[in-house]
């Protein structure tokens, strides 16, 4: 009467093998820098490389800026669309889907052609301008994820009722957003932030084409020139991604819930 669970375990086993073997192989390979025995030399070599430190620092910084800009762009928009402009919702859904459909390389090509040094907004004319452009590009890449995280967060707390309750008690819009809405969707916003970070930290295409000294192009460069360090870097990248996702999981436990959900 109970469905046989054997097939489920078989599927799981095959899947687990496919996903774990490359990790094991990569880790094993990263330990083989010295002939004859395992060592963490490749990791030491990576961490002592000044280019690792500068590119990682640079990408982290750009990632943080992308998170801040992403929050400023997404949160007010989602809030007002949910609250008062529901007819704009399909448009928002469509726009936030675009980065998943238009390849990143196409977008960056558009930026390079549109915002070159002789255009009205010459982003690529200076290093700082290019950094700004890179940040905005990353906000665009993360837009679908940031939007969905924030939207889900706002749905879970029923912002309409909260806003109306605050208005009845005389709070103005600025106060409502800063002291009622933001604290309640903090977990959702942080989830979006960590997701943004995970996407941005090792990004290669855009950083490379904008010629910025980011972590992604550095990884590619090491991959083309070294033997064992790439494996170590792959493991490190995996751990960073895992850390970002782990934070999201951890945060989800603190997500506020209200009993009334309107949709």
């Amino acid at each position: 009467m109970k469905p046989n669970k054997l097939w489920a375990w078989i599927v799981f086993g095959i899947g687990a093998a496919y996903f774990l073997v490359p990790l094991i192989a990569t880790f094993e390979f990263s330990l083989k820098m010295r002939r004859g025995y395992y060592s963490f030399d490749s990791y030491a070599s990576v961490f002592s490389d000044p280019r690792f430190q500068t590119t990682f620092g640079y990408s982290t910084l750009i990632g943080l800026f992308a998170i801040v800009v992403g929050i400023l762009v997404v949160v007010p928009a989602v809030y007002f669309v949910r609250l008062r402009l529901p007819h704009l919702r399909p448009l928002m859904e469509f726009i936030t889907l675009l980065p998943l459909i238009i390849p990143a390389i196409v977008l960056v090509y558009g930026y390079i052609r549109l915002y070159n040094s002789s255009s009205i907004i010459p982003f690529t004319g200076s290093a700082l301008g290019t950094d700004v452009l890179l940040t905005c590009a990353y906000v665009t890449l993360a837009l679908p994820y940031m939007y969905r995280a924030v939207d889900t967060g706002m749905r879970a707390i029923d912002i309409k009722t909260l806003t109306e309750a605050a208005q009845i008690m005389g709070a103005d819009t600025a106060r409502i957003i800063t002291s009622i809405i933001l604290p309640n969707i903090l977990v959702a916003v942080l989830s979006g932030a960590f997701l943004t970070f995970a996407i941005v930290i090792g990004e290669f295409t855009i950083a490379s084409l904008l010629n910025r000294p980011a972590f992604g192009p550095y990884l590619q460069n090491i991959g083309a020139n070294r033997a064992y360090e790439p494996s170590a870097l792959a493991i490190i990248s995996f751990i960073i991604t895992w850390g970002a996702m782990g934070m999201i999981q951890l945060l989800a436990r603190f997500a506020p819930r209200t009993s009334a959900r309107t949709d």
Partner: peptide
């Protein structure tokens, strides 16, 4: 969640090692 974001250059390294 991790693996879907584990794309790009490091993924290539992992499969070369495998």
């Amino acid at each position: 969640g991790v693996a879907s974001n584990f794309a790009g250059v490091p993924l290539a390294f992992a499969f070369i090692s495998t």
